[in-house]
C-alpha cells in the first residue's frame, strides 16, 4: 500500500495555545471551586472560626481565577483580530455556502459516522471544522453568561469599577436568586462542552492521525502534501480552507485519506 506524505503546518500560534490552556485551567478551577462554594464539604471540628479561613480561601481562588479567565478571554478576542486565519474571528462564522456544506459534511461523516464514496481531502479542515467553530461560539456565549452573572454577583463585594460594570444584570434578572441560578446551571454546560470537546479531539486524532491532540501543544498539524500549493507535481492552486476551494479542483480519489 502506497504511503502518504505529510507536511508539518503551523496552525495554532503561541497566543492561541496559551489562551487555550489558561482557559482550560481556569474552567477546571472555577468549576471545582464553584461546586465547593455551592455545596461546601462537611467539616466537623471544634475549631474556633478565627483559626481557619478555608471557605474564604476557596472563594478567593474562585474570584481570582475569574479575573484570569476574563482577561484571558479579552486577549483571545484581541488575537481574533491580530492572529492568523485559523485564529481569526472570521474562522468562526458559518456564513457561506462552503461553510454550510462543511457543517453538513462533518455532521454526516463525523457525527453520524457515514463513509464517503469519493474522498475529497479538502473536506478535512486544517483549523477548526465548522461544527467545532460553532461549538466555540457557544462556549464563548457561555463564557459571557458566566462573566456577566459572576461579576454581577461579585459586584457588591468589590469597590473596583470593573465588577460594577455588570451590576445591572441583577435588576435585569430580578435578583441574586435568579443570577445565581443561571451562574450555577451554566457551569454544567461547561462540563458538557468539555466532555464532548475532549472526546472529539481524541476521535479526530485517532481516525485522521494528523496530530490533533499534539497540535494544541506544539501548534503543528500534519497536512497531506498534495494540499500544498508549491509541492512538486501538484501545481494547482489550492487553499487550506475547504470553504474557499472550488469543487472542480477536487482531486478525485477513491481511497480513504490517511
Amino acid at each position: 500500500m502506497e504511503s502518504r506524505n505529510f507536511k508539518r503546518v503551523y496552525v495554532w500560534e503561541l497566543p492561541v495555545r496559551i489562551f487555550h490552556w489558561i482557559n482550560a485551567l481556569c474552567i477546571l478551577v472555577l468549576a471545582i471551586t464553584g461546586f465547593i462554594i455551592a455545596d461546601p464539604v462537611a467539616i466537623l471540628s471544634n475549631a474556633e472560626a478565627s483559626e481557619s479561613y478555608w471557605f474564604g480561601t476557596v472563594r478567593f481562588i474562585h474570584f481570582a481565577t475569574a479575573y484570569v479567565f476574563f482577561f484571558n478571554m479579552l486577549l483571545r478576542i484581541y488575537w481574533a483580530f491580530a492572529g492568523n486565519k485559523y485564529a481569526s474571528w472570521k474562522a468562526f462564522l458559518p456564513f457561506s455556502k462552503k461553510r454550510w456544506n462543511n457543517i453538513l459534511h462533518v455532521l454526516r461523516i463525523d457525527i453520524l459516522l457515514q463513509n464517503e464514496k469519493v474522498h475529497d481531502i479538502r473536506n478535512i479542515s486544517v483549523g477548526h471544522n465548522m461544527v467545532a467553530s460553532l461549538s466555540y461560539i457557544a462556549l464563548f456565549v457561555l463564557a459571557l453568561v458566566q462573566v456577566f452573572t459572576g461579576f454581577a454577583l461579585y459586584a457588591d463585594n468589590s469597590d473596583w469599577f470593573l465588577p460594577d460594570l455588570f451590576a445591572w444584570v441583577v435588576p435585569l434578572l430580578g435578583g441574586d436568586f435568579a443570577v445565581r441560578k443561571v451562574h450555577h446551571i451554566a457551569t454544567w454546560f461547561f462540563i458538557f462542552f468539555t466532555i464532548v470537546h475532549v472526546y472529539l479531539v481524541f476521535y479526530h486524532d485517532w481516525l485522521e492521525g494528523r496530530g490533533e491532540v499534539s497540535s494544541m501543544f506544539g501548534g503543528y498539524k500534519f497536512i497531506r502534501e498534495d494540499r500544498l500549493k508549491k509541492t512538486p507535481g501538484n501545481t494547482k492552486e489550492k487553499s487550506e480552507q475547504p470553504s474557499e476551494s472550488k469543487p472542480e479542483d477536487n482531486p478525485k480519489e477513491d481511497e480513504i485519506i490517511v
Binding site: 463513509n115 458538557f192 472526546y199 476521535y203 480513504i256 490517511v258
Partner: peptide, 29 residues
C-alpha cells in the same frame, strides 16, 4: 453528563466499526 458519557462511548464504538476500513488501511501503511 451520564447520558452524554454513554452516548460518547457508543459513538466511539460505532466509529471504530464504521471507519474500520479507513483505520485498517492507515494501520497497515
Amino acid at each position: 453528563a451520564g447520558v452524554l458519557a454513554g452516548g460518547i462511548a457508543a459513538h466511539a464504538i460505532a466509529a471504530n466499526v464504521s471507519k474500520r476500513k479507513e483505520l485498517k488501511d492507515r494501520n497497515s501503511r
